[in-house]
Amino acid sequence: MARLIINSTPHEIEVDPDTPLLWVIREQIGLTGTKYGCGVAACGACTVHIDGAATRSCVLPVSAVGPDQQITTIEGLSPDSSHPLQQAWLQLDVPQCGYCQAGMIMAAAGLLTQNPNPSDEDINNEITNICRCGTYNRVRAAIKLAANGGEATQRG
């Protein structure tokens, strides 16, 4: 039995302690916005927040998460897609296939929490998620748009 707080809701679940948090979230809690992409923490599609910090959940055993830690998934980032990043993503129409985008947004949200006004270099260092459709430039622009309170700036 494990106790997890996911999107502010406590859950008591029967689970093998070695199970990666990703699969607990997807298959036992039933929140499928967090994606499986590689299973080796290489692509970032599985990014969630643990106590606000962006974390790749596909290699994190559920037993490594404490009963009082706050896990946030894309479904819990905002109640109504109103997070500044979600709004910026909508404004710039960032996604293509969209499969990696929840992880991108969660990674970006983690970055903005630590660094509200990231430089290109900061973004390069922190947003290492893979997108095969190639949305990188719009992801970058949307992060900057959100950081600037919704006002578009030139990439610089």
């Binding site: 499928t32 916005g33 967090t34 897609s81 979600q86 993503w89 909508l90 996604p95 985008q101 929840a102």
Partner: peptide, 8 residues
């Protein structure tokens, strides 16, 4: 786009 931003 909208559904791709919130996990739905």
């Amino acid at each position: 786009t909208a559904d791709k931003l919130n996990g739905s």
